[in-house]
Structures are given as C-alpha cells and as structure tokens.
Amino acid sequence: MRPEIAVLDIQGQFRVYTEFYRADAAEKTIILVNGSMATTASFAQTARNLYPKFNVVLYDQPYAGKSKAHNLHSQPLTKELEGQILLELIDHFAAEHILSFSWGGAAALIALAQRPRRIEKAVISSFSPVVNVHMRDYLERGVRHLGAFDRYELGHLVNDTIGKHLPSLFKRFNYKHVSTLDIHEYVQMHFHISQVLCIDQLCYLNAAQNIDVPVLFLNGEWDEYTAAEDAKLFGKHVANCQFSTLKSTGHFLDMEHKAACSDSQKALLSFLKPEPATKRSRYNEVQHHHAFAL
C-alpha cells in the first residue's frame, strides 16, 4: 500500500495533506474522517481493512499532522468549516462513501446534511448525539488540562478513559502523540470541547434529519463514552440507518484486539458491499446524463 500524496488547496483558505490509496480493481472510493487530535496514522488499520476492495482517502485537518506546516493557525476551525473541507475532498476524489471516527462524526454529519450527490453510503463510528455522564466527565477534565497546557495529564487522561481498552503499545503511542502536540492544536481542541459542552445536543439530530443516504452507526460494546444505546437515538432522525455493536470492544474499535479488527472489517464490508451490476449500470447512466458541480 503506497499512497499518492498531495497537499490540496481548499478554496484558497486551507491546504490539506492527503493520501490516496488507489486500488486498480476497486469500483468505489471511501474517504476517512479523523477524530480529535488524530492524524492519518490513526487510520492505518482501518485502511488495511478496506483496501484493496475500495480506493481509500486519508487526510489531516489543516491544524493537524502533515497539514499543519502548510497553514496559518490564527484561529480555531469550527465543525462547520471541517464539514465544508470534507465536502471539497469528496468532490476532488469523487468519493462515494464516508467513514468517520469519534468526533470526526460531527463534521461527517454536517457534510452529509448538505446531501452531497456523489455520496452513496456513510459509516459513523464511535459517535453518539449524547454527552452522557462519562463523556461529560472526560470532556470537563480535558478542557481543564488543555486550558493549562498540561500535556502529561492530558496524555494520561486519554489513555485512562476512551483509550483504556487499547493494548499497552498503542497506549504508549497515544500518550506520546497527545503529549507532544503543538500549542495551536491544544487551542483547537480546547475550542472544540468547549463548544461540545455548551452545544444543544439536538443539533446533531436536527442535522441528521436531512441525510438522504444509508448510514451505519458502529459502536463498541464496552464504550461508555459514545455508547451504542445513545447512538440509537439517530434511528428516529435518519431515514435509512443501521446499527452495529462490536462485542468486547471499547471506543477505538479495530485498534483494540484482533477479533475486534476482524469484526469491524466484516461490519464495514457487509454494509458497503457494491451494488448489483445491473443497478450500478443504471446509476452510471444517470450520473453521465446529469453533470455534478459543488
């Protein structure tokens, strides 16, 4: 797996580092949306689960990973802007599917609510519309450590809460990553968490009502923070949705153990499997007739 690497200009405002894993036999392209404080490296296992059945697109938000050297960081990005960036990338790579992880689900929902005509299916993993007592405790402690730029306490907090089911090696990588971020990244996360703590929780559900493609909500059985039962609230708002709970797994799903990795792959491929050839042919004729513009 060797990606085609590009740094794309987004409307003259941002430059976004991207990795495109092109599979010659793949008929569909899926774009993966990171969670908070994460980079393309966080999706290494997920990308392997999807490639080469799909072309896979990874990217870093303008403030993170290999994008941050190409951008000014004068002010934090809103989730609305992150949703707009995602829409631009969907258009650029002609992606048919979206897969988001954790708080990347907020940007994904915002983008999906705009009904991008290319998108056929979406997977929202480790996300729920509810800030429950466990998530609120995690976020309130996190915003205190971020406000004080306390790198080490923040690293321990992530591993002791949402990352508590990760293998020890992954916890070490997690701690090193979280405790060595740039100051502007802590400012970004402080801004984001403060918004989440103050936001009307119905905003995600209201956005979900506009989604017109099938969506799979994928959560871990042991995840107290974005609980599977809380995610099921989307069932009343997304017209065409499914729910899957991975057994014996927490927030980080396919990263936690081999069985979870296999179960996650099965859930994704079962949901995203290609349409029958006859139906796909008719769809292509419609797409050829109606030009797309974003």
Rank of each mutant, 00 (worst) to 15 (best):
E4T: 08
R15I: 08
R15M: 06
Y17S: 15
F20Q: 02
N34E: 06
G35K: 09
T39D: 08
T39W: 05
T40M: 12
T46A: 10
N55P: 06
Y59P: 00
P62W: 09
G65T: 06
K66V: 00
A69P: 04
L72R: 11
H73G: 03
S74V: 01
L77C: 04
T78A: 06
Q84R: 00
L86V: 09
L87C: 11
E96R: 11
E96V: 04
H97S: 12
F101L: 12
G104E: 08
A108G: 11
L109M: 14
A111E: 07
L112K: 01
R115G: 01
A122W: 05
V123L: 08
V123Q: 10
P129L: 06
M135G: 14
M135E: 13
R141A: 03
L146S: 10
L154E: 13
L157P: 01
L157W: 05
D160K: 11
I162D: 07
H165V: 05
H165Y: 15
S179W: 05
I183F: 04
E185P: 00
Y186N: 09
F191Y: 14
F191I: 04
N206W: 05
A207P: 05
P214W: 11
Y225Q: 14
T226M: 13
H237T: 01
N240L: 11
N240G: 08
C241F: 10
Q242S: 15
F243V: 07
S248N: 10
T249H: 04
M255A: 13
M255T: 02
Q265R: 10
A267P: 01
L268H: 06
Q287R: 09
H288A: 15
